[in-house]
Amino acid sequence: MNKVVEVQELGIKDYKSTWDYQEDIFKNIVDLKIKNRREEVELPTPNYLLFVEHPHVYTLGKSGDLSNLLLNKEQLTEKGATFYKINRGGDITYHGPGQIVGYPILDLENFFTDIHKYLRLLEEMIILTLADYGLQSERSPGETGVWLDVGTPFARKICAMGVRASRWVTMHGFALNVNADLGYFDNIIPCGIRGKAVTSLNVELGKKHIDETEVKEKLLKHFKTLFEAEYK
């Protein structure tokens, strides 16, 4: 069981090229697992955690409803945004500047074979990170991600999640709003959920800008503890 995770900081990167990069890593890990089983060997499978910031983009999960995108092609162009239908779970979401996007590409057989637990630990990582900033966040029953003021008329989502897994290898991941332009969420029905708002860490703290490098350091600290991982 290899619990070493290679952390990669990709900077600002186009969504499609990042998706292709994820797919290449994902395929290499799956192919290695197939080879191990076929040849009855035990070569260790690698794990990765990619951090990236995307230019404005809307993505729709495989079970999503296209009507939750409220813009046509011309309006997308006017907004400087792109759109992709992709192979993760969940409905529609937005990625853009000021948002920390994390893509763990893990062989869960190195950690535990439980997708439900995997999602809950990712949520817990976000909850603990927000607690470091004095914010109390939580899960919303039946809705993946991390929220504030669940069960009140002021419920709002601060972190979206959507993953894909095959042969216990994961891809896609989480998007935490840190300094996000929330106006871009007005162009979709986020995650297909009507009547609930979206927020960002800087808004909640009443600050113009939050140090995103510091937020990533906190995320990595909690990820390491929760997954009992090591970094390289």
Rank of each mutant, 00 (worst) to 15 (best):
E212T: 15
L201Q: 06
F185M: 08
G195S: 09
N179V: 08
P190M: 08
I210R: 11
V178G: 11
L201E: 07
K208G: 13
L201I: 09
N177Q: 07
E212L: 14
D186M: 03
V203T: 14
N187C: 12
L201F: 04
I189K: 00
I189R: 08
D186F: 05
F185W: 12
L201R: 08
N179Q: 06
F185H: 11
L182D: 02
N187H: 13
N187Y: 14
N187D: 12
P190W: 06
I193N: 04
N187Q: 12
L201T: 04
R194K: 13
T213L: 13
H209R: 15
I193S: 03
S200Y: 03
P190C: 05
C191D: 02
G195A: 05
G183E: 14
I188L: 06
N179C: 01
G206E: 05
K208H: 13
T213S: 15
A197Y: 08
H209F: 15
N202T: 09
K207R: 14
L201S: 09
P190Y: 04
R194M: 12
V198A: 10
V203I: 15
N202K: 13
L205T: 05
E204T: 04
L205F: 02
A180S: 15
D211H: 09
H209N: 15
L205I: 00
K196P: 01
G192N: 02
N202V: 09
L182F: 09
T199I: 06
K196Q: 05
Y184N: 06
K207V: 15
I188K: 03
K196S: 01
D186P: 01
E204M: 12
H209I: 15
K207S: 11
Y184F: 14
D211C: 10
L205Q: 02
V178F: 07
F185A: 04
L205H: 01
K207C: 04
F185C: 06
Y184G: 03
E204K: 05
C191P: 00
K207M: 14
L182G: 04
N202M: 04
F185Q: 09
G206K: 06
D211Y: 11
N187S: 12
V198S: 08
V203C: 12
N202P: 03
K208T: 15
E212W: 10
A197E: 13
T199Q: 03
I189G: 00
L201P: 11
I193P: 06
G206N: 04
Y184S: 03
Y184D: 07
I210N: 10
V178K: 10
G195F: 05
A180L: 15
E204D: 07
D186T: 04
N202C: 12
N179M: 02
N179H: 04
Y184W: 09
A180M: 15
V203G: 07
D186V: 00
D181L: 08
S200I: 11
F185T: 02
I193M: 10
V198L: 08
K208L: 13
G206F: 02
Y184R: 10
K207D: 07
C191T: 01
P190S: 09
R194S: 14
C191K: 02
A197N: 13
D181N: 15
G206H: 00
G183H: 14
N187L: 10
V203N: 13
G183A: 13
E212Q: 15
H209G: 11
F185P: 00
K208N: 14
I188Y: 05
D181T: 07
D181I: 04
D181M: 06
N187F: 13
E204H: 01
I193K: 11
V203A: 13
G192P: 00
G192H: 01
N177T: 02
R194E: 15
